[in-house]
Write a protein that binds this DNA or RNA. Structure first.
Lengths: 197, 197
DNA sequence: GCCTGTTGATTGAGCGTTCAAACAACAGGC
DNA sequence: GCCTGTTGTTTGAACGCTCAATCAACAGGC
Protein backbone atom coordinates (compact mmCIF):
# COMPACT_ATOMS: atom_id res chain seq x y z
CA UNK A 1 0.00 0.00 0.00
CA UNK A 2 1.57 3.23 -1.15
CA UNK A 3 1.50 6.34 1.05
CA UNK A 4 -0.96 7.86 -1.39
CA UNK A 5 -3.36 4.96 -1.00
CA UNK A 6 -2.96 5.01 2.76
CA UNK A 7 -3.84 8.70 2.92
CA UNK A 8 -6.84 8.42 0.61
CA UNK A 9 -8.12 5.44 2.54
CA UNK A 10 -7.78 7.18 5.88
CA UNK A 11 -9.19 10.44 4.55
CA UNK A 12 -12.27 8.74 3.10
CA UNK A 13 -13.09 7.38 6.51
CA UNK A 14 -12.22 10.48 8.53
CA UNK A 15 -13.97 12.96 6.24
CA UNK A 16 -17.01 10.73 6.42
CA UNK A 17 -16.84 10.39 10.20
CA UNK A 18 -15.89 13.93 11.23
CA UNK A 19 -16.24 16.03 8.11
CA UNK A 20 -13.55 17.86 6.18
CA UNK A 21 -12.89 20.87 8.40
CA UNK A 22 -12.91 18.89 11.61
CA UNK A 23 -10.38 16.39 10.29
CA UNK A 24 -6.91 17.74 10.95
CA UNK A 25 -3.75 16.83 9.12
CA UNK A 26 -2.56 15.44 12.45
CA UNK A 27 -5.55 13.08 12.42
CA UNK A 28 -4.51 11.80 9.02
CA UNK A 29 -0.89 11.42 10.09
CA UNK A 30 -1.64 9.43 13.22
CA UNK A 31 -4.07 7.22 11.34
CA UNK A 32 -1.61 6.48 8.53
CA UNK A 33 1.56 6.45 10.67
CA UNK A 34 3.13 8.88 8.23
CA UNK A 35 4.97 12.13 8.85
CA UNK A 36 3.72 15.47 7.71
CA UNK A 37 6.51 15.82 5.15
CA UNK A 38 5.49 12.58 3.47
CA UNK A 39 1.90 13.66 3.22
CA UNK A 40 2.85 17.01 1.78
CA UNK A 41 5.16 15.26 -0.65
CA UNK A 42 2.17 13.43 -2.12
CA UNK A 43 -0.53 16.08 -1.67
CA UNK A 44 0.49 19.76 -1.89
CA UNK A 45 -2.36 20.80 0.40
CA UNK A 46 -5.22 19.50 2.47
CA UNK A 47 -7.62 20.39 -0.31
CA UNK A 48 -5.72 18.10 -2.67
CA UNK A 49 -6.44 15.25 -0.29
CA UNK A 50 -10.12 16.14 -0.56
CA UNK A 51 -9.86 16.12 -4.33
CA UNK A 52 -8.21 12.72 -4.20
CA UNK A 53 -11.01 11.41 -2.03
CA UNK A 54 -13.73 12.73 -4.34
CA UNK A 55 -11.93 11.22 -7.34
CA UNK A 56 -11.75 7.90 -5.55
CA UNK A 57 -15.52 7.99 -4.95
CA UNK A 58 -16.08 8.95 -8.57
CA UNK A 59 -13.88 6.15 -9.91
CA UNK A 60 -15.08 3.54 -7.43
CA UNK A 61 -18.85 3.92 -7.72
CA UNK A 62 -19.23 0.61 -9.58
CA UNK A 63 -17.26 -1.69 -7.33
CA UNK A 64 -17.78 0.16 -4.06
CA UNK A 65 -21.45 1.00 -4.37
CA UNK A 66 -23.37 -0.52 -7.25
CA UNK A 67 -21.93 -4.04 -7.45
CA UNK A 68 -22.31 -4.78 -3.71
CA UNK A 69 -25.91 -3.57 -3.77
CA UNK A 70 -26.90 -5.24 -7.03
CA UNK A 71 -25.14 -8.58 -6.53
CA UNK A 72 -28.28 -10.65 -6.51
CA UNK A 73 -30.94 -8.28 -7.75
CA UNK A 74 -32.25 -8.38 -11.31
CA UNK A 75 -35.46 -6.40 -11.29
CA UNK A 76 -34.52 -2.86 -12.36
CA UNK A 77 -36.80 -1.08 -9.91
CA UNK A 78 -35.78 -3.34 -7.07
CA UNK A 79 -32.20 -2.42 -7.91
CA UNK A 80 -33.02 1.15 -6.97
CA UNK A 81 -34.38 0.10 -3.62
CA UNK A 82 -31.46 -2.27 -3.12
CA UNK A 83 -29.19 0.74 -3.54
CA UNK A 84 -31.18 2.63 -0.93
CA UNK A 85 -31.02 -0.48 1.24
CA UNK A 86 -27.24 -0.24 1.11
CA UNK A 87 -27.41 3.24 2.57
CA UNK A 88 -29.82 2.02 5.21
CA UNK A 89 -27.31 -0.59 6.32
CA UNK A 90 -24.57 2.04 6.51
CA UNK A 91 -26.73 4.37 8.56
CA UNK A 92 -27.94 1.70 10.94
CA UNK A 93 -24.47 0.21 11.50
CA UNK A 94 -23.13 3.61 12.54
CA UNK A 95 -26.07 4.30 14.88
CA UNK A 96 -27.13 7.08 12.54
CA UNK A 97 -23.96 9.07 13.00
CA UNK A 98 -22.73 8.65 9.43
CA UNK A 99 -24.56 10.10 6.48
CA UNK A 100 -23.94 10.14 2.76
CA UNK A 101 -20.24 10.98 2.38
CA UNK A 102 -20.82 13.13 -0.68
CA UNK A 103 -23.90 14.86 0.65
CA UNK A 104 -22.25 15.76 3.93
CA UNK A 105 -19.28 17.28 2.15
CA UNK A 106 -21.55 19.09 -0.28
CA UNK A 107 -23.33 20.87 2.55
CA UNK A 108 -20.27 21.38 4.74
CA UNK A 109 -18.15 23.18 2.15
CA UNK A 110 -19.79 26.55 1.71
CA UNK A 111 -17.46 28.11 -0.79
CA UNK A 112 -15.64 25.26 -2.48
CA UNK A 113 -13.11 25.74 -5.27
CA UNK A 114 -14.58 25.08 -8.70
CA UNK A 115 -12.60 21.86 -8.94
CA UNK A 116 -14.08 20.55 -5.70
CA UNK A 117 -17.59 21.63 -6.62
CA UNK A 118 -17.33 19.94 -9.99
CA UNK A 119 -16.24 16.72 -8.34
CA UNK A 120 -19.14 16.86 -5.92
CA UNK A 121 -21.50 17.48 -8.83
CA UNK A 122 -19.97 14.66 -10.90
CA UNK A 123 -20.41 12.23 -8.04
CA UNK A 124 -24.09 13.14 -7.82
CA UNK A 125 -24.46 12.93 -11.59
CA UNK A 126 -23.00 9.45 -11.80
CA UNK A 127 -25.24 8.26 -9.00
CA UNK A 128 -28.27 9.72 -10.77
CA UNK A 129 -27.24 8.19 -14.09
CA UNK A 130 -26.94 4.75 -12.52
CA UNK A 131 -30.50 5.07 -11.22
CA UNK A 132 -31.66 6.41 -14.54
CA UNK A 133 -30.35 3.30 -16.32
CA UNK A 134 -32.56 1.26 -14.01
CA UNK A 135 -35.57 3.39 -14.87
CA UNK A 136 -34.87 3.02 -18.58
CA UNK A 137 -34.61 -0.72 -18.09
CA UNK A 138 -37.99 -0.72 -16.39
CA UNK A 139 -39.41 0.47 -19.71
CA UNK A 140 -43.17 0.18 -20.03
CA UNK A 141 -43.71 -0.38 -16.33
CA UNK A 142 -43.50 3.40 -16.00
CA UNK A 143 -45.98 5.75 -17.67
CA UNK A 144 -45.17 6.81 -21.20
CA UNK A 145 -43.21 10.03 -21.36
CA UNK A 146 -41.84 9.69 -17.83
CA UNK A 147 -38.92 12.07 -17.34
CA UNK A 148 -36.42 9.46 -16.18
CA UNK A 149 -33.79 12.07 -15.45
CA UNK A 150 -36.03 14.05 -13.15
CA UNK A 151 -37.31 10.89 -11.51
CA UNK A 152 -33.83 9.53 -10.87
CA UNK A 153 -32.80 12.87 -9.41
CA UNK A 154 -35.82 12.55 -7.17
CA UNK A 155 -34.52 9.22 -5.91
CA UNK A 156 -31.33 10.98 -4.86
CA UNK A 157 -33.42 13.75 -3.34
CA UNK A 158 -35.34 11.26 -1.22
CA UNK A 159 -32.16 9.46 -0.20
CA UNK A 160 -30.33 12.60 0.89
CA UNK A 161 -33.34 14.07 2.65
CA UNK A 162 -34.01 10.80 4.43
CA UNK A 163 -30.39 10.43 5.51
CA UNK A 164 -30.35 13.97 6.86
CA UNK A 165 -33.42 13.44 9.01
CA UNK A 166 -32.27 10.04 10.23
CA UNK A 167 -28.97 11.54 11.32
CA UNK A 168 -30.55 14.55 12.96
CA UNK A 169 -32.97 12.44 14.97
CA UNK A 170 -30.50 9.56 15.38
CA UNK A 171 -33.29 7.25 14.25
CA UNK A 172 -33.16 5.18 11.08
CA UNK A 173 -36.96 5.07 11.00
CA UNK A 174 -36.94 8.54 9.41
CA UNK A 175 -34.95 7.10 6.51
CA UNK A 176 -37.26 4.11 6.30
CA UNK A 177 -40.33 6.28 6.06
CA UNK A 178 -38.77 8.35 3.29
CA UNK A 179 -38.01 5.18 1.32
CA UNK A 180 -41.52 3.93 2.00
CA UNK A 181 -43.00 7.11 0.56
CA UNK A 182 -40.79 6.78 -2.49
CA UNK A 183 -41.96 3.21 -2.89
CA UNK A 184 -45.55 4.39 -2.75
CA UNK A 185 -44.75 6.88 -5.50
CA UNK A 186 -43.33 4.13 -7.68
CA UNK A 187 -46.34 1.95 -6.98
CA UNK A 188 -48.65 4.74 -8.13
CA UNK A 189 -46.55 5.25 -11.25
CA UNK A 190 -46.62 1.55 -12.13
CA UNK A 191 -50.35 1.49 -11.53
CA UNK A 192 -50.88 4.49 -13.76
CA UNK A 193 -48.79 2.87 -16.49
CA UNK A 194 -50.87 -0.31 -16.25
CA UNK A 195 -54.16 1.57 -16.46
CA UNK A 196 -53.05 3.50 -19.51
CA UNK A 197 -52.09 0.29 -21.31
CA UNK B 1 -31.50 46.67 19.74
CA UNK B 2 -29.82 44.95 22.64
CA UNK B 3 -26.40 43.32 22.25
CA UNK B 4 -28.07 39.94 22.52
CA UNK B 5 -30.39 40.69 19.62
CA UNK B 6 -27.51 42.08 17.58
CA UNK B 7 -25.49 38.92 18.08
CA UNK B 8 -28.36 36.58 17.32
CA UNK B 9 -29.22 38.55 14.22
CA UNK B 10 -25.65 38.54 12.94
CA UNK B 11 -25.13 34.89 13.83
CA UNK B 12 -28.27 33.79 12.00
CA UNK B 13 -26.93 35.35 8.85
CA UNK B 14 -23.31 34.26 9.22
CA UNK B 15 -24.05 30.67 10.23
CA UNK B 16 -26.34 30.48 7.24
CA UNK B 17 -23.80 32.02 4.88
CA UNK B 18 -20.60 30.37 6.07
CA UNK B 19 -21.67 27.64 8.47
CA UNK B 20 -20.99 27.36 12.17
CA UNK B 21 -17.35 26.29 12.25
CA UNK B 22 -16.25 28.71 9.56
CA UNK B 23 -17.82 31.65 11.38
CA UNK B 24 -15.32 32.99 13.88
CA UNK B 25 -16.07 35.01 16.96
CA UNK B 26 -14.10 37.77 15.26
CA UNK B 27 -16.59 37.67 12.38
CA UNK B 28 -19.45 38.15 14.81
CA UNK B 29 -17.65 40.97 16.58
CA UNK B 30 -16.87 42.94 13.46
CA UNK B 31 -20.40 42.49 12.18
CA UNK B 32 -21.99 43.65 15.42
CA UNK B 33 -19.37 46.28 16.34
CA UNK B 34 -19.11 44.71 19.77
CA UNK B 35 -16.08 43.68 21.76
CA UNK B 36 -15.33 40.13 22.71
CA UNK B 37 -16.01 40.77 26.36
CA UNK B 38 -19.51 42.01 25.63
CA UNK B 39 -20.29 38.94 23.60
CA UNK B 40 -19.00 36.65 26.34
CA UNK B 41 -20.96 38.63 28.87
CA UNK B 42 -24.15 37.61 27.07
CA UNK B 43 -23.19 34.18 25.76
CA UNK B 44 -20.78 32.05 27.83
CA UNK B 45 -19.46 30.28 24.71
CA UNK B 46 -19.76 30.13 20.96
CA UNK B 47 -22.03 27.13 21.27
CA UNK B 48 -24.44 29.18 23.35
CA UNK B 49 -24.72 31.56 20.41
CA UNK B 50 -25.66 28.59 18.26
CA UNK B 51 -28.28 27.55 20.79
CA UNK B 52 -29.67 31.08 20.75
CA UNK B 53 -29.89 30.99 16.99
CA UNK B 54 -31.68 27.65 16.94
CA UNK B 55 -34.11 28.86 19.59
CA UNK B 56 -34.79 31.96 17.50
CA UNK B 57 -35.64 29.78 14.50
CA UNK B 58 -37.82 27.58 16.68
CA UNK B 59 -39.70 30.50 18.16
CA UNK B 60 -39.97 32.42 14.91
CA UNK B 61 -41.27 29.77 12.55
CA UNK B 62 -44.73 31.33 12.38
CA UNK B 63 -43.84 34.92 11.62
CA UNK B 64 -40.57 34.31 9.80
CA UNK B 65 -41.55 31.35 7.66
CA UNK B 66 -45.21 30.37 7.61
CA UNK B 67 -47.00 33.72 7.62
CA UNK B 68 -44.94 35.21 4.77
CA UNK B 69 -45.49 32.13 2.65
CA UNK B 70 -49.15 31.68 3.43
CA UNK B 71 -50.24 35.28 3.33
CA UNK B 72 -52.57 34.90 0.39
CA UNK B 73 -52.95 31.16 0.03
CA UNK B 74 -55.95 29.28 1.30
CA UNK B 75 -55.86 25.90 -0.37
CA UNK B 76 -54.16 23.58 2.12
CA UNK B 77 -52.12 21.69 -0.47
CA UNK B 78 -51.11 24.86 -2.25
CA UNK B 79 -49.91 26.11 1.13
CA UNK B 80 -47.35 23.32 1.12
CA UNK B 81 -46.07 24.34 -2.29
CA UNK B 82 -46.13 27.99 -1.29
CA UNK B 83 -43.82 27.08 1.56
CA UNK B 84 -41.50 25.34 -0.87
CA UNK B 85 -41.79 28.36 -3.11
CA UNK B 86 -40.45 30.46 -0.28
CA UNK B 87 -37.34 28.32 -0.17
CA UNK B 88 -37.01 28.59 -3.92
CA UNK B 89 -36.95 32.36 -3.67
CA UNK B 90 -34.26 32.18 -1.00
CA UNK B 91 -32.13 29.84 -3.06
CA UNK B 92 -32.49 31.81 -6.25
CA UNK B 93 -31.79 35.17 -4.60
CA UNK B 94 -28.51 33.89 -3.23
CA UNK B 95 -27.43 32.35 -6.54
CA UNK B 96 -27.78 28.93 -4.95
CA UNK B 97 -25.13 29.57 -2.33
CA UNK B 98 -27.50 29.48 0.63
CA UNK B 99 -29.37 26.38 1.62
CA UNK B 100 -31.76 25.52 4.40
CA UNK B 101 -30.23 27.06 7.54
CA UNK B 102 -31.30 24.16 9.75
CA UNK B 103 -30.36 21.43 7.28
CA UNK B 104 -26.90 22.85 6.71
CA UNK B 105 -26.23 23.00 10.42
CA UNK B 106 -27.63 19.52 10.92
CA UNK B 107 -25.15 18.05 8.47
CA UNK B 108 -22.22 20.23 9.45
CA UNK B 109 -22.26 19.41 13.16
CA UNK B 110 -21.10 15.83 13.36
CA UNK B 111 -21.11 15.35 17.09
CA UNK B 112 -23.42 17.99 18.50
CA UNK B 113 -24.24 18.29 22.19
CA UNK B 114 -27.60 16.79 23.09
CA UNK B 115 -29.05 20.26 23.59
CA UNK B 116 -28.04 21.32 20.09
CA UNK B 117 -29.25 18.10 18.51
CA UNK B 118 -32.58 18.41 20.27
CA UNK B 119 -33.01 21.94 18.94
CA UNK B 120 -32.20 20.81 15.41
CA UNK B 121 -34.70 17.99 15.76
CA UNK B 122 -37.36 20.30 17.22
CA UNK B 123 -36.96 22.70 14.32
CA UNK B 124 -37.54 19.86 11.87
CA UNK B 125 -40.46 18.57 13.90
CA UNK B 126 -42.23 21.92 13.94
CA UNK B 127 -41.75 22.29 10.19
CA UNK B 128 -43.17 18.82 9.63
CA UNK B 129 -46.10 19.49 11.95
CA UNK B 130 -46.97 22.66 10.05
CA UNK B 131 -47.10 20.67 6.82
CA UNK B 132 -49.05 17.92 8.50
CA UNK B 133 -51.74 20.38 9.55
CA UNK B 134 -52.13 21.25 5.86
CA UNK B 135 -52.49 17.60 4.97
CA UNK B 136 -55.11 17.09 7.64
CA UNK B 137 -56.97 20.13 6.31
CA UNK B 138 -56.92 18.58 2.84
CA UNK B 139 -59.04 15.79 4.30
CA UNK B 140 -60.79 13.61 1.72
CA UNK B 141 -58.65 14.87 -1.16
CA UNK B 142 -56.04 12.37 0.02
CA UNK B 143 -56.66 8.63 0.06
CA UNK B 144 -58.25 7.20 3.17
CA UNK B 145 -55.71 6.04 5.71
CA UNK B 146 -52.94 8.26 4.37
CA UNK B 147 -50.12 8.48 6.90
CA UNK B 148 -50.02 12.27 7.11
CA UNK B 149 -47.00 12.23 9.39
CA UNK B 150 -44.91 10.17 6.98
CA UNK B 151 -46.12 12.21 4.02
CA UNK B 152 -45.30 15.52 5.67
CA UNK B 153 -41.86 14.20 6.58
CA UNK B 154 -41.50 13.33 2.92
CA UNK B 155 -42.19 16.93 1.98
CA UNK B 156 -39.26 17.93 4.17
CA UNK B 157 -37.21 15.14 2.63
CA UNK B 158 -37.88 16.45 -0.85
CA UNK B 159 -37.15 20.04 0.19
CA UNK B 160 -33.82 19.23 1.82
CA UNK B 161 -32.71 16.89 -0.94
CA UNK B 162 -33.67 19.42 -3.58
CA UNK B 163 -31.88 22.26 -1.80
CA UNK B 164 -28.76 20.15 -1.47
CA UNK B 165 -28.61 19.36 -5.17
CA UNK B 166 -29.43 22.92 -6.21
CA UNK B 167 -26.59 24.20 -4.06
CA UNK B 168 -24.13 21.58 -5.25
CA UNK B 169 -24.83 22.29 -8.91
CA UNK B 170 -25.43 26.00 -8.31
CA UNK B 171 -28.62 25.62 -10.34
CA UNK B 172 -32.10 26.14 -8.94
CA UNK B 173 -33.54 23.88 -11.63
CA UNK B 174 -32.55 20.89 -9.49
CA UNK B 175 -34.80 22.20 -6.74
CA UNK B 176 -37.58 22.89 -9.22
CA UNK B 177 -37.49 19.35 -10.56
CA UNK B 178 -37.63 17.92 -7.04
CA UNK B 179 -40.70 20.04 -6.30
CA UNK B 180 -42.23 19.03 -9.62
CA UNK B 181 -41.82 15.36 -8.76
CA UNK B 182 -43.42 15.96 -5.38
CA UNK B 183 -46.30 17.70 -7.14
CA UNK B 184 -46.71 14.69 -9.39
CA UNK B 185 -46.86 12.49 -6.30
CA UNK B 186 -49.60 14.64 -4.81
CA UNK B 187 -51.49 14.60 -8.10
CA UNK B 188 -51.40 10.80 -8.12
CA UNK B 189 -52.59 10.70 -4.51
CA UNK B 190 -55.49 13.05 -5.22
CA UNK B 191 -56.41 11.01 -8.28
CA UNK B 192 -56.34 7.80 -6.28
CA UNK B 193 -58.56 9.37 -3.62
CA UNK B 194 -61.04 10.48 -6.25
CA UNK B 195 -61.20 7.04 -7.89
CA UNK B 196 -61.81 5.33 -4.57
CA UNK B 197 -64.71 7.66 -3.84
C1' DG C 1 26.95 11.25 -7.01
C1' DC C 2 22.53 11.84 -7.98
C1' DC C 3 17.73 11.41 -7.32
C1' DT C 4 13.42 10.14 -5.20
C1' DG C 5 11.31 9.99 -1.09
C1' DT C 6 11.21 10.59 4.12
C1' DT C 7 11.88 12.77 8.63
C1' DG C 8 9.89 15.61 12.40
C1' DA C 9 10.89 19.84 14.70
C1' DT C 10 9.46 24.40 13.55
C1' DT C 11 6.70 28.33 11.88
C1' DG C 12 3.24 31.81 12.19
C1' DA C 13 -1.49 32.76 11.61
C1' DG C 14 -5.96 32.15 13.57
C1' DC C 15 -8.92 30.32 16.91
C1' DG C 16 -12.10 30.59 21.28
C1' DT C 17 -11.72 32.44 25.58
C1' DT C 18 -10.25 35.27 29.73
C1' DC C 19 -9.68 39.16 32.80
C1' DA C 20 -8.24 43.31 35.16
C1' DA C 21 -9.58 47.66 34.45
C1' DA C 22 -12.77 51.36 33.10
C1' DC C 23 -17.23 53.10 32.76
C1' DA C 24 -22.25 54.31 33.22
C1' DA C 25 -26.39 54.43 35.88
C1' DC C 26 -28.66 54.71 39.85
C1' DA C 27 -29.91 54.76 45.00
C1' DG C 28 -29.54 56.53 49.70
C1' DG C 29 -27.79 59.53 53.14
C1' DC C 30 -27.07 64.08 54.37
C1' DG D 1 -27.39 69.38 45.08
C1' DC D 2 -23.62 66.59 46.12
C1' DC D 3 -20.98 62.81 47.48
C1' DT D 4 -20.39 57.68 47.95
C1' DG D 5 -21.08 52.81 47.30
C1' DT D 6 -23.04 49.33 44.37
C1' DT D 7 -24.37 46.95 40.36
C1' DG D 8 -24.23 45.72 35.70
C1' DT D 9 -21.94 46.32 31.42
C1' DT D 10 -18.16 47.25 28.21
C1' DT D 11 -13.32 47.45 26.94
C1' DG D 12 -9.47 45.28 24.28
C1' DA D 13 -5.03 43.36 25.09
C1' DA D 14 -3.39 38.99 26.15
C1' DC D 15 -3.39 33.82 26.65
C1' DG D 16 -2.96 29.03 25.44
C1' DC D 17 -3.74 26.15 21.94
C1' DT D 18 -4.50 24.03 17.37
C1' DC D 19 -4.02 24.27 12.81
C1' DA D 20 -2.05 23.79 7.92
C1' DA D 21 2.13 24.14 5.97
C1' DT D 22 7.43 24.39 5.68
C1' DC D 23 12.19 22.98 5.17
C1' DA D 24 16.89 21.68 6.15
C1' DA D 25 18.70 17.34 6.96
C1' DC D 26 18.86 12.65 5.87
C1' DA D 27 18.35 7.56 3.75
C1' DG D 28 18.68 4.15 0.18
C1' DG D 29 18.66 2.58 -4.55
C1' DC D 30 20.90 2.84 -8.85
Amino acid sequence: MTPREKIIHAAMELFWLKGYNSTSIADLLSRTQLNSGSLYHVFPSKQDVLIGVLEAYRDGIEEMLLEPAWGQVDDPIEKIFALLGGYRTMIAESDCTYGCPIGSLALELHEPDPQVRDLLAVNFENWVKAVQRCLEAAGPRLPKGTDTNALSEFVLTAMEGGVMQARTHRDVAYFDRAVEQLRAHFALLEQAAKQAA
